[in-house]
């Protein structure tokens, strides 16, 4: 009777443990793989711009197209005017190039690029302070964008902000998306990342330095 009781309660515990473990495994899979995969929508850029082609083969640098204005403000994503300097006519045989020149250059339409890195309207980020004064390389925050060719733009379904995998050797899956930033993934900076760096460098952390 006692044995039976014990085995009965053991069975009960085993059952409960099994339910617990199964729930744990399922939720871990959901938490690590399913939700992260669902959290992002893949979107295509209007034109599949090819950074390695520009940087590695043609040999232009970031600041050829992403430059500072005279007053130290940042031009950001180049406008059509900058592109037209080279792309007034179709160069090469790529169908994307043909689409770019015919659909945008010839029609004088700005490309509505999806931005991999952008901050909300309440944030003002000074490239001049970071690049010119603190001498931080573009890659530190943007990763090797110039050497990677992200086919897709990943838009977070809640925020509409992107995270993008730059290392083409890493398969694009849930694990890569949630990997710590700076290894294989770069994207919009969070405020704690900004302040951590500012603190470690002894720079001002006054709110208005970043918030406008």
């Amino acid at each position: 009777m006692k044995m039976r009781d014990i085995s009965e309660s053991q069975r009960q515990f085993a059952l409960l443990g099994g339910i617990f473990a199964a729930a744990l495994v399922v939720s871990l899979i959901m938490g690590w793989i399913l939700f992260p995969s669902l959290a992002y929508a893949r979107k295509a850029q209007p034109i599949n711009y090819n950074p390695p082609l520009h940087v590695e083969q043609i040999g232009i640098t970031c600041d050829t197209c992403h430059f500072f204005y005279e007053d130290g403000s940042w031009a950001g994503i180049p406008t059509l005017e900058t592109c037209v300097d080279c792309h007034s006519d179709i160069i090469g045989a790529s169908p994307e190039e043909e689409k770019f020149v015919n659909e945008y250059v010839k029609k004088n339409r700005e490309v509505k690029w999806a931005l991999y890195v952008k901050q909300p309207e309440c944030v003002s980020f000074s490239h001049s302070s970071h690049v010119r004064m603190a001498k931080i390389a573009c890659e530190t925050c943007h990763g090797p964008q110039g050497h990677s060719d992200p086919k897709d733009y990943l838009a977070n379904r809640i925020t509409n902000y992107s995270y993008v995998v730059y290392d083409p050797r890493v398969p694009l899956n849930a694990f890569t998306i949630i990997r710590d930033k700076g290894e294989t993934v770069w994207g919009t900076m969070r405020m704690d990342e900004c302040t951590a760096c500012h603190r470690s460098r002894g720079t001002s952390t006054a709110c208005f330095i970043c918030h406008k």
């Binding site: 007053d71 130290g72 403000s73 003002s124 001049s128 208005f208």
Partner: peptide
């Protein structure tokens, strides 16, 4: 900030 930007530049 704009003034600092310019100075940094």
């Amino acid at each position: 900030l704009k003034a600092k930007d310019k100075a940094h530049n």
